[in-house]
Design a protein around this nucleic acid. Structure first.
Length: 306
DNA sequence: GAAGCATAATGTCTTGTCCT
DNA sequence: AGGACAAGACATTATGCTTC
């Protein structure tokens, strides 16, 4: 198994009204570093793409990534470059990138240009930005930029940022620092949601558990499904007594609190997301202190006051 | 600039309570 | 019962961070 640490550069419409609905961002460069199981660099990949949708470079984006349209005119089109990239990656690989945007964007571009998705269900990958936050003990919600992390770790900054291969190489350098045990903290690209119950994702991490449901036609059907709204203890697998019933502050997130006799208070959160054919749920469960349980009660009351 | 995410703030409509 | 206002429920908009 190899790791593919990759980075994309993309362009967007210069005028909002001319935006292509299913392709807000068009990929113009792919850069990647291939690492073996020991996380040693084995190979690199760098290709640019000749755009077909947005034929002028957005002012801000062009300045950021330092590419001009004229430079891209001799490049191959996206389907060919993407095909070459995936061929170069090989079959038994785990993707990794800085932040959660690259893999979904790659798959959205592939979808737009009529290519088959990389996997038949949710695709596990490593968000190195998130792993870095776990590694340094800072909050995973307050994410740091790649240049910030490189500066913080005292790596050389000789190569420019916002070039695909350069950023992929920087990301790989950070990735090599991440302790082995943290590499179990997968993220998922839900470009393809689970088709049936068999494809649903149940995964237990050190500090929380995650469940990704199949899709339902309506939000109501989703929030009635026994599996979706169940609150079993993810350690001893017993049904738990509900202390706070499912409530939502905004219609998109739902929270519940249950109590396990052995493992204590378990907080569950459901995020309702849109799938191509309806809605699906991402449920995370974690154990919290009595104090945090009290805060959740306050959140419920606070939400109700407004 | 735009997307995506989380959260904060604001807005609108319904329901509840007190008083006359 | 009806008026006045408070509080709840739900929806929309704004903010702040990252990515390009």
């Amino acid at each position: 198994m190899n790791y593919i640490i990759f980075d994309l550069e993309w362009n967007q419409s210069s005028r909002k009204e001319r935006e292509e609905p299913h392709l807000p961002f068009e990929i113009v460069e792919i850069g990647a570093v291939k690492l073996n199981e020991k996380r040693e660099v084995v190979d690199t990949f760098e290709r640019r793409v000749r755009p077909q949708v947005y034929l002028s470079m957005h002012r801000i984006t062009g300045e950021l990534i330092g590419l001009k349209m004229e430079e891209l005119q001799k490049e191959a089109l996206f389907p060919e470059v993407a095909k070459d990239f995936l061929g170069w990656c090989g079959k038994d690989v785990l993707f990794g990138s800085w932040g959660p945007h690259d893999l979904p964007e790659l798959q959205r571009n592939m979808d737009y240009f009529g290519m088959e998705p990389i996997a038949k269900g949710p695709l596990a990958y490593l968000d190195v930005q998130k792993l870095y936050a776990l590694f340094t003990g800072s909050s995973t919600k307050q994410r740091k930029s790649l240049s910030h992390a490189i500066l913080e770790m005292h790596f050389d900054q000789e190569r420019p940022f916002h070039h695909a291969l350069s950023d992929a190489a920087y990301t790989a350098e950070i990735f090599r620092l991440i302790p082995e045990e943290l590499l179990q903290n997968f993220s998922f690209d839900n470009h393809v949601t689970p088709r049936g119950k068999q494809q649903e994702i149940h995964i237990v991490f050190d500090t929380y558990a995650k469940y990704i449901s199949r899709s339902f036609a309506t939000k109501e059907a989703l929030m009635k499904d026994p599996e979706v709204i169940s609150t079993k203890c993810y350690i001893c697998h017993r049904n738990l007594r509900r202390r706070i019933r499912w409530f939502t502050p905004n219609g998109k997130h739902y929270y519940a609190l249950s109590e396990c006799g052995i493992h204590g208070f378990m907080k569950s959160k459901i995020r309702v997301k849109k799938a191509t054919d309806g809605y699906f749920a991402e449920k995370t469960s974690k154990f919290i202190t009595g104090e945090e349980a009290e805060q959740l009660r306050e959140k419920q009351k606070h939400g109700k006051r407004k």
